[in-house]
Amino acid sequence: MAGSRSHKVSTIFHRVQGLLTAEGLEWKDRPLWYDVMEKFPPKTPPKFNRPLPPDTVKTIVYPEDLIRAKYFERFVKSDFTKLKSHIGWKTLPQMFIEEYVKHQREGATVDEIFDEVEAKLNQDRTRYKRYIHKPNRSTPRQGTVTETETEST
């Protein structure tokens, strides 16, 4: 079939249309897909030369993400995500956070609720016992010399 091979110019539909209007291609010889594409055109014309779309992508953040951050500060990530079938499957952090939301009330600090939830879940399921507290990395390690000390000496 006749046709331009310059793939960067316009779209395939437009190129065939041009051939038909210029009588380079007879109407009976038009490609099989032509009528279908005319009736159901693509949502965006598949042009190679097109302006860059605006780079505005939002970040997905949930209200319970603050709790999630606290959770990962406290506990070691001890379980895995099940990719085979995640229907009806919840990860340990997710279960913890859902329980936390139930316990949330005014006047209670975050640490208090954390302890409550932890105690409750440990009671229910044995696997929650495995949680280990992370060492607090914000405090300086033993043996390191701080600036104030070097100044005094």
Partner: peptide
Amino acid sequence: PYMTPYLFGVR
């Protein structure tokens, strides 16, 4: 960059 219109967000 041409895929940005199809994105919901970044998680």
